[in-house]
Amino acid sequence: MQPRWDDLQDFLRVARAGQIARAAAAAGIDATTLARHLRRLEATLGQTLFEQSREGQVLTAAGEALLVAAEAMQQAASGIVATDADPDRLSGVLRVSVSEGFGTWFVAHHLRDFTAAHPDLTVDLVASSGFLSPSRREADIAVLLARPQTGPLVSSKLTDYALGLYAADLYAARHPLPVEPAAVRDHPLIGYVPDLLYAPELRYLAEIHDGLEPRIRSSSINAQYRLVAAGAGLGVLPRFIGDADRSLRRVLPERTIRRSFWLVTHQDTRGTKKVRAFREWLTGLVAAQRGRFG
């Protein structure tokens, strides 16, 4: 017995969204109906396609295999109904997961160039405190702070980048800035909420001086930037953020922190046209503006 096409489409919705409720809301259908379609598909195939986790639905090995086939079917079907004869024209949805700072301060400033070149492609730019997982098919492509060590992933270094300690001019006008690392502890520090860190690479202050702890804390790098710019204290910022604001100045410029961005895709989808096009566009853009990353 062959699976129904509408059941396969619902399977794709849940595989990409990671949750039945989220997929149903995005599609404008009832979650109970969507769940029933998934059960019917599993019964037709005689396989379990998802496992239930605290976060939602996670693909099984059988689900991963079906996802590759279903995406190929959907791409072929899109080509049949396409009105444009250009076989290289991109369509569908591309979901990109990036860190909040990189997404807001770099990708968002240039994304119009990519979307203008591909008018039939919808791009989801997920720029937040945390990452969607390419291995669980939550994103088509991700820019991560560390190279993944496990999973069916393909990764390459996008760029190294530098961070530094910053203060606003208005803060410096009221407070003498430290000229040695030990003196930083005498100033209010801005940083991440320790138990909400989504990556160990975000632990910065110890690389300025041992024992430093933030007194004003936020899970958002954009909020931290706003706090520094408002004169609330000193904070570590990526140089592509801090150097972009002329009202900020480097404190202890000899103390430079180094990190890297890694470009990550699932091994089964890395060769699809939309993923390849975005990867090549972003890699070229970063290379052309390498100076912004210190």
Rank of each mutant, 00 (worst) to 15 (best):
M1V: 14
P3V: 04
W5Y: 10
D7G: 02
D10F: 01
D10C: 07
R16Y: 05
I20Q: 14
A23Q: 03
A23K: 02
A25N: 10
A27H: 01
G28D: 07
A31M: 07
T32S: 08
H37Q: 14
H37F: 01
L38H: 13
L41K: 10
E42F: 03
A43R: 15
T44L: 03
T44C: 15
T44N: 14
T48H: 12
G56E: 13
V58M: 11
G63S: 05
E64A: 09
Q74I: 03
A77E: 14
V81W: 06
T83R: 12
T83E: 11
A85L: 12
D86M: 03
P87Q: 07
D88H: 08
L90H: 01
V96N: 03
S97P: 01
S97L: 05
G101D: 13
F102Y: 12
G103R: 06
G103P: 00
T104H: 12
F106P: 00
H109V: 06
L111H: 04
H118G: 04
P119L: 10
D120T: 09
S128H: 13
G130H: 09
L132E: 12
S133E: 12
V154S: 11
S155D: 08
S156I: 04
S156R: 15
T159V: 15
D160N: 08
G164N: 05
A168T: 10
A173G: 13
P176Q: 11
V179F: 05
V179E: 12
E180F: 01
A182C: 06
A183L: 14
V184H: 11
P194C: 04
D195A: 13
L196N: 11
L197I: 15
Y198T: 14
E201D: 13
L205Y: 09
E207V: 01
E207D: 12
G211P: 01
L212E: 09
I216T: 10
R217D: 00
S220I: 05
N222T: 15
L227A: 14
L227F: 13
A229V: 02
R239V: 14
G242F: 04
D243S: 05
A244N: 05
D245P: 00
E254W: 00
E254I: 01
R255S: 07
T256I: 15
S260R: 09
S260E: 14
G271P: 01
G271E: 15
T272C: 01
K274E: 15
R279C: 04
W281D: 04
T283M: 04
G284P: 02
L285D: 06
R292N: 06
G294K: 03
